[in-house]
């Protein structure tokens, strides 16, 4: 693929890249710079994009690696989920939601995902939210597919613990410990 081929896809991908960058960085300014830098990097190495790789997952991977590099540069290796600034990521009452219960549920789901540890959160965003296959997510994050699945499984068990209606279970979930979802 050439830069020209890729460049014609960028404007269309932009809203999803923006949303992804916002969700992983939790900051509008960072997200804007992130997307911009990722697009520059992608155009520089468009020739490395193989025909069997989905351009969108490839772009997610560049956005993600750019962000990881950025975190390293800032020496915030273990950005804890407590740092998460969700002032602007709040879900608001959605007029299209059928019931208030559904609306509350949506907010709880978003909140549960946001509070996952970084590595699990990104996998959840790619697979459950962006709809990437395990394979695509593995490519995007440059890890084996087994790693994707085990992160996903851990993430889902942590989230499951929050949404599990039973009273008697004991789950050592970070998210649960934070008591962020009630």
């Amino acid at each position: 693929m050439t830069g020209a081929d890729l460049s014609s896809m960028l404007p269309e991908m932009l809203p999803r890249l923006w949303a992804f960058a916002l969700r992983i960085s939790g900051d509008q300014h960072d997200a804007e710079d992130l997307v911009q830098r990722a697009c520059v990097r992608a155009l520089e190495r468009a020739h490395q994009l193989r025909p069997d790789t989905a351009p969108l997952s490839w772009m997610f991977s560049i956005v993600h690696s750019t962000w990881i590099n950025e975190l390293r540069a800032r020496s915030v290796r273990n950005r804890s989920s407590m740092d998460w600034d969700d002032d602007f990521l709040e879900t608001v009452a959605d007029p299209a939601a059928r019931t208030p219960e559904e609306d509350v549920m949506n907010q709880q789901i978003v909140s549960a995902v946001q509070r996952l540890p970084e590595a699990q959160r990104v996998v959840m965003l790619l697979v459950a939210v962006e709809g990437l296959s395990y394979n695509e997510a593995a490519e995007a994050l440059n890890v084996p597919i087994g790693t994707i699945m085990s992160r996903l499984s851990r993430a889902r068990q942590a989230i499951g613990a929050l949404f599990d209606g039973r009273e008697d279970h004991k789950m050592k979930s970070r998210a649960k410990d934070k008591g962020s979802v009630s």
Binding site: A128, V129, Q157, I159
Partner: peptide, 11 residues
């Protein structure tokens, strides 16, 4: 049970 409870409408 936890995994079942995690089947949620994320998207």
């Amino acid at each position: 049970a936890l995994l079942k409870a995690s089947r949620l409408p994320y998207r």
